[in-house]
């Protein structure tokens, strides 16, 4: 399903980033980092039209030959980025949205942990589990 899932702090440093083929980790880091350009562009575009403020899903950030990068931004400007293999054509927009929602819920749980210091990298087993689920699950 997803090949890389990243959570990026408001200040644009990674809180969590995991990718499936580990040998390509670096490439995904670059990809996710670059995608922040589009995230910022989209956020500022949303900011202009106050109407759809509530829409957190940013949609396809940019496609590359091999991957599709989707974005999502919480109200506290924490960004989620999901990278999907382009050859995986079965994934529809709705599925991506639901993945983001799941991710957001799990992220909220992490933030609710009183022992978690907001701004620290996420080191939660539960969150890890959710992410693993999204990466392995087929279809």
């Amino acid at each position: 399903m997803a090949v890389c899932i990243a959570v990026i702090a408001k200040e644009n440093y990674p809180l969590y980033i995991r990718s499936v083929p580990t040998q390509n980790e670096l490439k995904f880091h670059y990809t996710v980092h670059t995608s922040l350009d589009v995230v910022e562009e989209k956020i500022s575009a949303v900011g202009k039209s106050l109407g759809d403020q509530r829409e957190l899903y940013l949609g396809l950030l940019y496609p590359t030959e091999d991957y599709k990068v989707y974005g999502y931004v919480t109200n506290s400007k924490v960004k989620f980025v999901i990278v999907v293999d382009s050859s995986n054509t079965s994934l529809r927009d709705n599925e991506i949205r639901s993945m983001f929602r799941k991710l957001h819920n799990s992220f909220t749980d992490v933030m609710c942990n009183p022992f978690h210091n907001p701004g620290d990298p996420i080191q939660s087993k539960a969150f890890d589990g959710i992410v693993s689920g999204m990466m392995t699950q087929t279809g």
Partner: peptide, 13 residues
């Protein structure tokens, strides 16, 4: 840019 945004892997690379 990587340093200022704290992306360690790209930084190292």
């Amino acid at each position: 840019s990587y340093v200022s945004e704290g992306w360690s892997l790209p930084v190292t690379h």
